Computed example of a mutant assay.
Amino acid sequence: MGKEFGRSQRVASEMQKELASIMLRDVKDSRLGFVTINDVELSKDLAVAKIFVTVLNADNAGKAANVKVLNEISPFIRHELAKRMRLRHISELHFYYDNSFDTGMRVAALLHELEGGKSAAAGADHSEQDD
């Protein structure tokens, strides 16, 4: 029977927790907004980490600017991560914006709009039957 979670998945999970803590407590860059760490994907050899983030209350330019700042300060974040994780080598960090939150909000708005249209149509059908 194989392992349910491979080493890279376990390390990625722990890295996500530590990165969230570092972002909350140690990163004091005024250029950053409210950044959340959504996911961490590690290469099989653990050399490279793709870190997917979302930025709340920011337009597209603000989101891109936040990701740019994170990539600029990644050596500092990597150093802090090295202090906290018991690994011989710490992965190279690459930050990317995660569109899934925006997509989910857009789908929810469309469903709400569709639901509103159905109830309005149902209300019109009932009023025609009363005549």
Rank of each mutant, 00 (worst) to 15 (best):
S30L: 11
D130S: 15
V55G: 05
F76K: 09
I22P: 01
A108Y: 06
G117F: 03
D26W: 01
E4F: 12
A122H: 05
N66G: 08
H79I: 03
A64K: 10
K118F: 14
F34P: 00
N38R: 09
L111N: 13
D59N: 15
E115N: 07
A49I: 12
D102P: 00
F52N: 03
F52P: 04
A122Q: 13
A120R: 03
A20I: 01
R31Q: 07
V69W: 03
E18N: 05
K50I: 08
A121S: 14
V40R: 04
H112D: 15
S74G: 08
S119M: 12
R25G: 02
V27W: 07
L19C: 06
Q129G: 10
A108Q: 10
K118E: 15
E80P: 00
L46N: 06
I51T: 09
A12H: 07
L19I: 02
H79Y: 13
G123N: 10
D98S: 07
L19H: 00
V107R: 13
N99I: 07
D45H: 06
I73T: 01
K50C: 03
D59Q: 07
A121D: 15
E14H: 06
D125G: 04
S91F: 11
S127Q: 09
V55W: 01
A12V: 10
G123M: 09
I90L: 15
D26H: 13
L56P: 00
A120N: 05
Y96I: 12
L19P: 04
M85Q: 03
N60Y: 01
P75H: 11
E113L: 08
R106V: 10
N99V: 09
D59L: 06
G33C: 04
Q16P: 00
R84W: 08
S8H: 13
E4Q: 14
N99E: 14
G62K: 02
A58C: 05
G104I: 14
S119V: 14
R84L: 09
E80C: 09
K17S: 13
Y96R: 04
E113M: 04
K83C: 08
D98T: 03
A122R: 12
G62A: 02
K68V: 07
A109K: 13
Y96P: 00
A120K: 09
H126L: 14
F76T: 07
R78E: 08
E14K: 10
S30Y: 07
A47D: 13
M15A: 05
F95A: 00
L46S: 02
E113F: 01
T103N: 11
K118A: 13
A108S: 02
D102G: 02
A82Q: 06
H79N: 14
Y97R: 07
M23R: 08
